[in-house]
Design a protein around this nucleic acid. Structure first.
Lengths: 302, 302
DNA sequence: CACAAGTTGCAATATTCTTTGCACATTCTC
DNA sequence: GAGAATGTGCAAAGAATATTGCAACTTGTG
């Protein structure tokens, strides 16, 4: 039961123990909490009490003795830490003291990314990257706030030398873009949480027209998954009402990185050209250190 | 498609969907459960209901429609499966291509985020969030690929009920926008790696006009830092040529989360309104019945 | 256009879980 | 060894959560 959950989880809990130590029963309960973090995270006070051979009341009192308002408050912390230790054992956030909304958001994103890192089948990303590299052109459909991820993906992919365009200007343009693609092209649909009607339409229509369709989604979207050849699942759960775009952005980044490695020469040339343009247009505030793009991604074991 | 072990969570839940499919609201709830397994595993029925935009009663009814006695029974199953999906497939992902560009990118982002999490002073984010909340309006300046972060920030901030606009359409519009703001307004400049000339200009000009200026940047941009009241430093190093937007996006997410907590009532009201609009405009995809094999219905917006 | 079938939200009800007052038991001190 | 102080269990009060009856609404059909 106890994996290597122990470190951050146990240390933290032990640190809450006050100077005087705990009463015998409270100590017994603490041992249960430490040794069975899973049950401690989910179970009712009564369940833990029985497990520790103490009364329910002792659970509440122990929680209070540890500095919490009551059992629910303690349990919430236990949960957060237990889950963190499950998904990101290596990071072991030290200051994860349930602080401000912003720091909670960061921590959640960190967890999501750790989860993504373990879950993601990079074979899928390679497939998509190669499809984009081979495609006549690529259209990215992304509505709502997900448009940001689509834009980033398209922007960097173009920089890498591939004709990738994001459609974010509404349904009319979307329709036109879908009408303009066909066999030999690629469409990437990005959508988390709630699915926009037009995104699904575009994906289905494109597939019917012989376009290779891929999807980036948070798995809540069978409609989109059905239309896609491959689906990349991304955790998008945020702490507030908004779904988090962070993990999706990480996937976009990974995808572009993979794409850049498909044909390094092409990418290098493209970047060099782009840089020349930026210079000519006077876009940059200062001349940066000239990067050596060919060196950056020259090592690809696969 | 991906038939990885981790999908057992989603697959399993989808398999419980009865023949006829689900009612619209039930389907909406199912999406939330699938996309936010953490919350689904821990949260109360009411919380999930709000997230899905349905009534509490629907949660209970959906659980029953899926063949469970009620929400607690469903939640218990969800928990078990979510937790095992967290801890099980760790090993597989590690070895299948540990060195591919995409997985290196992901790992780099993970590291960056961990670094950010340690370094970031949440007081700064709070300051910015409060400034935005108090401002007459807020303009976000972000050029190049950073525009994606700016867009996401603006989009979600608007959703939270604040007049935030991202300027991404070129220098002409940027000039107009800067001309239109003054004391009592806020400008947020987002720029990593290389600094666009116009971004710096806008920041300096705005500050001269009495606008509160904040900056999101990596360490390499002293010019921007000079023009800003507060600077949020974000690691943006990518594995390839491209700077990573992931950490920047995480900060945007954190900022919006903080902003949403400044005046929760206002944010709730705003989101509710927005949801009503989405509904009216028929933006969301609400087809509950995906699995019909021969049934190739053409999706029609309702 | 009206009716019927089905769906959803509201609100009262029922259930479960947590906390706390109180009494008994144990332990420590003089 | 007696008294006081502290710890613990029991059970009732209190809070939170889930369920269900009912009415209003929407959608499909004649």
């Amino acid at each position: 039961m106890t994996e290597r959950v122990t470190d951050s989880f146990q240390d933290w809990l032990r640190d809450r123990v006050p100077e005087r130590g705990l009463r015998p029963k409270a100590a017994a309960l603490l041992e249960v909490l430490l040794s069975q973090p899973r049950r401690a995270s989910f179970g009712a006070a009564a369940e833990l009490a029985q497990l520790a051979g103490v009364n329910v009341a002792t659970v509440t009192r122990t929680a209070q003795a540890l500095g919490f308002a009551g059992w629910p408050a303690l349990q919430q912390e236990l949960r957060a830490r237990y889950l963190s230790s499950l998904s990101a054992p290596q990071v072991a956030a030290e200051h994860s003291g349930a602080g401000s909304p912003s720091s909670r958001s960061l921590r959640r994103d960190l967890d999501s990314l750790a989860l993504l890192n373990r879950r993601l089948d990079e074979g899928v990303l390679r497939t998509i990257a190669e499809a984009v590299a081979a495609a006549g052109r690529t259209v990215i459909v992304a509505d709502g706030s997900y448009a940001a991820v689509g834009m980033a993906l398209a922007h960097n992919a173009r920089l890498a030398g591939y004709p990738v365009a994001a459609v974010t200007s509404g349904d009319a343009e979307l329709a036109n873009c879908v009408a303009a693609i066909g066999p030999g092209d690629v469409l990437i649909a990005i959508s988390f949480w709630r699915l926009y009607e037009s995104t699904v339409l575009a994906a289905n229509e494109a597939r019917a027209r012989g376009v290779r369709v891929f999807a980036l989604t948070d798995a809540a979207s069978p409609a989109l998954a059905n239309a896609a050849e491959e689906v990349v699942m991304v955790p998008a759960e945020g702490v507030a009402f908004f779904p988090s775009l962070t993990a999706g952005m990480a996937v976009a980044q990974a995808l572009v990185t993979q794409l850049a490695s498909v044909d390094p020469a092409r990418t290098s040339a493209s970047i060099e050209t782009a840089e020349g343009m930026w210079s000519k247009f006077g876009l940059l505030h200062r001349r940066p250190t000239p990067p050596a793009p060919a060196d950056q991604h020259s090592d690809q074991p696969d």
